[in-house]
């Protein structure tokens, strides 16, 4: 199991040929209180960089992009009733969607945990 990050603060936690996508702890902190999450429909095919979901805080709406290409096989529908879970547990219960990867080699272009933490330090 490995976790990779994008410069836009999405993570993907890869298990086999699938990956769980969410936003980083840094991202939820920057957003503030999440009040609404719009998730894609299961079965949707996303290319790397496509808009995968929308996360809304009190103040603004932000897009969540697909870190890599894949088919949406599951979404975290618990977020509809409890969007604040994204703030409470972004890496765990606050996940957004599960992708079946169509081009796993795209993971090589993403940051490792260590690289991402260095990146966050450089921008904060």
């Amino acid at each position: 199991m490995t976790t990779r990050y994008t410069k836009d603060h999405e993570y993907i936690r890869v298990e086999g040929d699938a990956g769980i996508v969410g936003i980083s702890d840094y991202a939820q902190g920057q957003l503030g209180d999440v009040v609404f999450v719009e998730l894609p429909s299961v079965g949707k095919n996303l290319s790397k960089g496509d808009e995968a979901a929308v996360v809304e805080s009190v103040k603004a709406a932000s897009e969540v992009y697909a870190p890599v290409s894949g088919e949406v096989v599951e979404v975290n529908s618990d977020l509809e009733a409890a969007p604040g879970t994204v703030n409470e547990d972004p890496a765990g219960r606050g996940w957004f969607l599960k992708l079946r990867l169509t081009n796993p080699s795209e993971l090589d272009g993403l940051m490792t945990e260590e690289q991402y933490q260095t990146f966050v330090k450089s921008i904060s």
């Binding site: 503030g32 209180d33 009040v35 805080s57 009190v58 103040k59």
Partner: peptide, 10 residues
């Protein structure tokens, strides 16, 4: 200041 550490909702 757009918000303090406790956040907008609080």
């Amino acid at each position: 200041p757009v918000q303090y550490p406790t956040g907008i909702m609080t």
